[in-house]
Design a binder for these strands. Structure first.
Lengths: 137, 137
DNA sequence: GTCAGGATTGACTTTAACGTAAATCGTGCC
DNA sequence: GGCACGATTTACGTTAAAGTCAATCCTGAC
């Protein structure tokens, strides 16, 4: 039998190549993330078995990459999602880090808005130019 | 006399170190961008003289970097800002590229919104936890 | 004119994030 | 029970984006 009974939509386990196909990354990339301690799939013998949680984690990592975060930064952000610490000092430290990341993200958002506005301007100018030269074509 | 009469706010020329201070990058970085053809400051002898336009260009480059774009991508985007071509085919090509970049940026924006929401969640949980353990401190 | 300190050049080094290749492993199928 | 084929491991290679270092060059101040 196959590794798993594919139940309609969400299966229990994914192979590494399943994920490479779904996310468009190489096996090397996924193994690299595992070496970096970002993902820890199960094993059957040597073969990796990725759970839904592993799959979501990979998705999270790739989202971070799209935003230009380094592996180290992604690890930092991931750590923020853990159960918050019980000690007040540690908690305040966490909150400071969260605040900093939020600041970075908001800066990125402003950068995006600006760039989008500029590109829209380019588009308009292009359309105008096209109308100009395209008259009668 | 100094290189330039500093007139209130915007001077005519900036030295390379002026820009390193303003933008928090190294001289090596700025020269690297020049080698890559992204900036072309004037020269007096060997010394670089950066105009306002060069300064704005540097700002643009660094904005791209913050968004995780590579030098090649930044060059591409920069080229889009040039006078649009007069030939219809080239113009359509440009518009296609603009559309693609806009798509990427909108994806990044969605990624940011998601991440921000998650971080806000972390913040809330942390505040709750702090209230819990911080009662009476 | 000389001298100190910033700017430049050129070359080599570094780091992150994978790519690539070779050899081994394992396992399901006939 | 042998074999084809995908997964793994190990190790070295590569690329982008600078960092670093040494030597030279200006140039304005004295």
């Amino acid at each position: 039998m196959a590794l798993d009974t594919p139940s309609a939509d969400s299966r229990e386990y994914y192979t590494i190549t399943d994920l490479t196909r779904e996310f468009g990354v190489s096996t090397r990339t996924i193994r690299f993330y595992e070496d970096e301690g970002l993902i820890s799939p199960l094993r059957r013998g040597r073969t990796r078995l990725f759970r839904q949680s592993d799959r979501r984690l990979l998705s999270f990592i790739l989202r971070g990459k799209r935003l230009g975060f380094s592996i180290a930064e992604i690890r930092e952000i991931k750590d923020m999602y853990k159960e918050p610490p019980g000690e007040a000092g540690q908690l305040r430290l966490l909150m400071a880090k969260v605040k900093e990341k939020r600041g970075e993200l908001e800066q990125k958002r402003r950068d995006i808005e600006e760039t989008l506005r500029e590109l829209e301007q380019v588009e308009e100018t292009s359309l105008a130019r096209l109308a100009e030269i395209g008259v009668g074509t």
